[in-house]
């Protein structure tokens, strides 16, 4: 479906001294605060990246997914990518082709589906990328 198609672009992965930098777009039609991001899982080059090796870059800070929970005033604008730092000791070199899979769980804070339960939208995006 189209919101999923928007999550990863063909040039979304860049090589860094520590591993990779990955640009991820929101799979929703409007901006959401970072507090609504409940999970980000990444699989690249056939490796599932442990949560300890994932950091979200935001306003010059490097945050774990857990640290996003309180950020109700920090917004992920719907047209902007969120940049994710991935630590990897043996990353693919620039120019390599690989598959990238990102699972994104976002709470939709106004769609209430049951008593004290808001909709959590799971998006699984997968694409072939060239490491830049």
């Amino acid at each position: 479906m189209t919101l999923e198609a928007n999550v990863l672009g063909p040039e979304s992965v860049r090589s860094t001294p520590l591993g990779y930098e990955i640009d991820v777009h929101l799979a929703w039609y409007r901006s959401l605060p970072l507090s609504c991001v409940e999970n980000i899982s990444i699989r690249i080059a056939d490796k599932a990246i442990p949560q300890d090796d994932i950091r979200i870059s935001y306003n010059d800070k490097q945050l774990t997914v857990e640290e996003l929970a309180d950020l109700v005033d920090d917004w992920w604008f719907v047209q902007d990518p969120l940049t994710i730092q991935v630590n990897d000791n043996s990353p693919l070199s620039k120019g390599s082709r690989t598959s990238l899979q990102v699972t994104l769980d976002t709470r939709i804070p106004y769609i209430i589906i049951g008593p004290e339960t808001a909709l959590v939208k799971r998006t699984e995006a997968m694409t072939e990328v060239t490491v830049k």
């Binding site: 605060p33 507090s35 109700v72 804070p109 004290e116």
Partner: peptide, 12 residues
């Protein structure tokens, strides 16, 4: 506009 009552997961 949006009401967004569940901005915080555990404290609506």
């Amino acid at each position: 506009c949006n009401a967004d009552i569940a901005l915080k997961k555990d404290a609506w």
